[in-house]
Amino acid sequence: MKGLAVIVGRDLRLALRQSADAWLAVLFFVLTAALFPFGIGPEPNLLRLIAPGVIWVVALLAVLLSLERLFLADYEDGSLEQLLLSPLPLELAILGKVAAHWLTTGLPLIAAAPLLAVLFNMDLTGLGVLLLAMLLGTPVLSLIGAVGAALTLGARRGGVLIPLLVLPLYVPALIFGVGATEAALADLSARPNLLFLGALLLVMLLVTPLAAAAALRQALE
């Protein structure tokens, strides 16, 4: 447990020293969403209708942006090999790195989501559920993303490959996340969607560290 905390702390410190990266993801999130009114017109009712979907899709893309850096720097300067040699199981070390990644990308996105909800004229009664769904869903994005990042280490065109590998796997999180928000906006119960999202998080919490660890071991062979 102590090793895990050390890894999270180290990655957070590194991220804070280059805080531009975290800001960049948030900036991308707001900026891309702001393009939609230009694309489809400023009609408030239409924007209100598509708000949950746009916020979620743009959040997926923003998370995608930062995935390549997840292991690449450690891979290049050799600290990943030290992690592999350390007594801490690699799976736990990966969980630590994913937690740090989520704290520096997922959490800022959640903090910025109310701004987008206002920009898109979303009914603010659904805001609580939107944030709760993002709280459950964005860790799933980081976890699956870690597998993609680990698999493409050392590949040609690794950065371009990650979206191709990861986006199809993001579909369930997107469906349940948007579903919860839309149910709340339609005065229905968001509970089933949120429960599925929670179940997805638990499954991914089990599966993805194993897969990412297998991928990292191959990359370092």
């Binding site: 698999l151 369930p172 997805l200």
Partner: peptide
């Protein structure tokens, strides 16, 4: 794409195998 992304074919095999296993767990969920 992952199968052909590496200079070393063995690495491509391994990475693609992990991806196929992650994928097969995800197919029912999707």
């Amino acid at each position: 794409a992952l199968m052909h992304a590496f200079e070393d074919q063995q690495r491509g095999y391994r990475a693609a195998a992990v991806l196929a296993l992650v994928g097969v767990i995800n197919v029912p969920i999707i």
